[in-house]
Design a protein around this nucleic acid. Structure first.
Lengths: 259, 259
DNA sequence: GCTTGTGAAACGTTTCACAGCC
DNA sequence: GGCTGTGAAACGTTTCACAAGC
């Protein structure tokens, strides 16, 4: 059982397993072989930081599209997504960019491209494990459908909860995991169990073939290297804010040095 | 109203306002003045990436402490926190480190130090705005107390909800925000409203003097530069996972090049 | 003229590798 | 002998600034 790589800068994720066997270890495929030999839609090996921002661009684009805009400049879009325009342009350039100089980007086209790169063409079925407080809230959250996902199954261990319906879905016993995952072709799971159960659940998920996990339990998960884990920990987010509060407080306590 | 800086690499936060007035703009205070003149506990200007990991170390340390360990090596602690040991040691070295060579770190001492740096000595009061699905789940989450926070007040706009009690706390109307924030000395707020309400709520919070916001609404917030915003967006996390799923799928479709 | 696309510089973060110390 | 602390190298990301193109 290999160990979780939890090294993402911003503080909440692990990474995919690059360079498994004898790969060059630095990104670029040494001598042009296979480099851009892809038919049409090959993934140009995006930087992780870019990948993490594409969904935000996508959200902003949908807002623009709804407003009826069909062209947007890097400046506008960057503003709407909360980044600066140079970064946005660089990010989009990795997608074999398709803006028009002097004009901007075609909103619809850009939406299609980003959705394609993120693999959102097919709606993805997600399993949710743990229907406590948080799990129920996540199950009830309506916003997924429009963003490429649907929760296809709910699981718990508590016999008292099995059979309950939440947002129209029955809660199933975790023993049914393998069956349902296969049936619904589930590759992504959300863990909303207490920390002490999370590793056991993870092992079960991995055994069923789930290869992406979003973990809300406050603990580190061990997974094989082909499995991706991202983590969301509420208390950690608050603690990071606390640090900045603390710093702001001490900065204003011992005051100015310039004026 | 200045714009949100939402530039954190890992994909979910904005940054504190550095270099407000005539500061040198690069980190170090040009000529030794004030540099390490601090009394005892001065914050050594930690890298953001380090700040984001300290809470994870803290969590892991608490687990160790509960097990009765009182010394831990960088290797062990790093493993428990899901990072590698070099990174851990570098991170701890910014805290004017206090491990013992050949031995390891004192668990209790390290907990104290990290808690102090994060400003967790005082329990921090947090306001939660929006008691829908997610808001209720957050309000009911018991794990805060042990990690330095307590939810001190709940707010909503929906008249039907005002007066309800959730986890022992009454839901108050958002018009009472200023009063309660002052009374409870609240500096941190969590936004769990729909996206369309989030900016209005943010403006109200900022007006009351709140300077840190954790935003669960899927939108970008505009805040003055002294206010920190971190963002958690479920759908974005799933979309990032989707990208990696997509990539894994296409990698196994057009298979090996080495063997 | 205005906006994209992009090399190159600047910056931040991680990893290496080993000296320093117990 | 074993583990910490840390310069220096490697790597990744952001920003700058301007050439290319509509």
């Amino acid at each position: 059982m290999s160990q979780q790589r939890n090294e993402r800068p911003g503080g909440s994720a692990s990474r995919p397993a690059r360079s498994a066997a004898g790969l060059p270890a630095n990104g670029s495929p040494a001598h042009g072989l296979s480099d851009r030999g892809a038919p049409l839609s090959e993934l140009p090996d995006l930087p992780e930081a870019t990948v993490a921002r594409l969904p935000e661009y996508l959200r902003a684009l949908h807002v623009l599209a709804e407003r009826g805009d069909d062209v947007v400049s890097s400046e506008e879009l960057a503003h709407a997504a909360g980044v600066n325009s140079a970064k946005l342009r660089k990010d989009l350039s990795y997608l074999r960019s398709n803006g028009t100089r002097g004009v901007g980007y075609d909103v619809g086209q850009l939406i299609d491209k980003i959705e394609h790169v993120l693999g959102l063409n097919q709606h993805r079925a997600v399993a949710l494990v743990g229907v406590g407080n948080l799990g129920q809230a996540l199950a009830g959250y309506g916003g997924f459908g429009s963003r490429g996902f649907h929760i296809a199954a709910l699981f718990d261990v508590d016999p008292a909860r099995i059979g309950d319906r939440i947002a129209g879905l029955p809660v199933r016993h975790i023993d049914d995991l393998a069956e349902v995952v296969a049936l619904e072709r589930i590759a992504i799971a959300v863990i909303a169990t207490p920390a002490h159960a999370a590793q056991t659940v993870t092992d079960a998920l991995v055994d069923c073939g789930v290869t992406s996990i979003l973990n809300f339990a406050p603990c580190v998960l061990s997974v094989p290297e082909n499995v991706d884990v991202r983590k969301v920990d509420l208390a950690i987010e608050l603690q990071i804010l606390s640090f900045h509060e603390h710093r702001k407080a001490t900065l204003t306590a011992l005051p100015e040095a310039i004026s």
